[in-house]
Design a protein around this nucleic acid. Sequence first.
DNA 1: TTGAAAGCGCTAACAA
DNA 2: TTGTTAGCGCTTTCAA
Lengths: 342, 342
Amino acid sequence: MQDKKITINDVAKLAGVSKRTVSRVINRSPLVGENTLKKVEKIIKEVNFSPDKQARGLASSRSYLLGLIYDHDDSLSIVQVQQGALSVCAQLGYELVVHPCKSKETDFIEECINSINRSKLDGVIILPPISENKQLAAALRAANCPYVRIASVDFDDKLNIVVSDERTAMKEMAEHFVDLGHKNIAFISGPLSYRSSIERMEGFLFELRSANIEIAESHILEGENSYESGMKCAMELLTKETRPTAILANNDEMATGVIRVASDLGIKIPEELSVAGFDDNIYASRIIPSLTTIKRPIENMAALASQKLINKVQSEHSAPIKLCGEVKPHLIIRESTTKKST
Amino acid sequence: MQDKKITINDVAKLAGVSKRTVSRVINRSPLVGENTLKKVEKIIKEVNFSPDKQARGLASSRSYLLGLIYDHDDSLSIVQVQQGALSVCAQLGYELVVHPCKSKETDFIEECINSINRSKLDGVIILPPISENKQLAAALRAANCPYVRIASVDFDDKLNIVVSDERTAMKEMAEHFVDLGHKNIAFISGPLSYRSSIERMEGFLFELRSANIEIAESHILEGENSYESGMKCAMELLTKETRPTAILANNDEMATGVIRVASDLGIKIPEELSVAGFDDNIYASRIIPSLTTIKRPIENMAALASQKLINKVQSEHSAPIKLCGEVKPHLIIRESTTKKST
DNA sequence: TTGAAAGCGCTAACAA
DNA sequence: TTGTTAGCGCTTTCAA
């Protein structure tokens, strides 16, 4: 901790160049002679110099802070997301600031923007479902705050969004249901105001139709993506005269609610009822029966989003950014689904 | 967003005072005349001025950034913790930076300290179990970085720690087991290198002894707090000749593992086996059967920790800090425990 | 109780 | 390709 007081001036002196040159080296400016570059870099290493973020920020009006905006109700996978984002941030000298917000309150956008301004965040990553919020995106643009949205559909400039193809993933799920011989299928959608809900639903229904299976309208319920909502919808579905033999829920939370209700009603899963979800949240593999679901590679998506964001933020400066993995969701088959009983 | 450029100079001019005076107002210095104070505060409100954190930080070598240090393996309740901390941070103008770390890697402490220095964090909150790490605390002290630890025992200066009385909570649990008539009880502890594991175990065993119940040594297993570890221990316990009628695990994760194994072995919970955990994590109420457990008010603890930390950071400056609620853990009885079958 | 001036450590014009 | 000179917006000596 001794070396904390080393400043750009010290480096400049030691290297026998000007401050400005050191600054150029730090910022990877191309306008530095090979020799000077080497000399300066050597000194920097030797004295273990790292530039002061605040000073840098004050001078260049950047903060090296990235924000993570998400709805605080819907934060189950937030840990993985943070991990993914951090893996990139740490590498590139950015810090991650968390900002859960309450999308139900009317002034949440204003509140977000204020907070961003106060901390001068260089940019933000927005998680679903508020990543779909148009007003938020517009406000961000107005405030001149770069953002990257994580979403399931391509509703923004390529540079502003990381998408996972949930529609196709849902087809896999539908195939799985078909393979198992289910015909009397029910679906609990997410709120239809979300594009992702529509995507998932359409992907599922479309593929089912290709297999000549049509879900009765009464077997499609609009849920709210919560456990409680899953229970409510399940109760409705499972007390019908002709009960479905398989239920797909828009997410694992709701699927968990379905399993709960089925259990309470004495309906055996998967023997009498197949249930599946979406997300592969932490508990999907641990509940009993373990849940067939679709894994969303949310950690990778967050990493990718960070990369995109930092690229934008650094625009002119060149930054060597490693690209990271796949963002394709895929089916995971577990205990909660099985062949339709005959 | 218009008002972004307003600086302390503008305010000073408008109020007809010097920069320095405005600064005093901002920092709640007592050396300001009543009238001046009012005048300046009025202007500040009018023009919606808020001081620039970076400039402030650069000048005063503070960052208004607090760090949250936790082991990235053990991050299930991290969301609540963040919430609690943020509720306080936001109020007092601090931002929260997340820092998961890998306590298993040898240089994790160095890595932490580096990261703290780089971002000039004003202080950090350390979550269990690494809150118990002595070397980490020592390194923090050496680096002159204020910290507050969240823990289950009082092993540091009052100002540096927020404790929840887990020992007493465990007594409640023991009473519950006794009330249910269990005598053949097993316990899966956490790693015994953790003080919290010891606390919980001793609290439990002690109270049991008061009721003249002694757990056989073979019925006390040391787990690792993970789901998998819970399964492993459960397998051992449930395949013994005389199987326990009740199992308490050191946390919900392990309890979930126990439930899984019992289910696989065809042992009915709670009829044939009572199971309980500790933490009341997100899923404790949702698994089947729902889990009897002890709720740790982790959100409140985090809020309290933030308050303590900010108090330390601001030492001389007076800061109006609302105190927040209880940090007493308590028993929650759900489906997974019941009377010993006769 | 207040103010003037000198930085905090860096980047950004503008020259050279 | 490099250096000089100003600041960024605030806090902090030190005087008044």
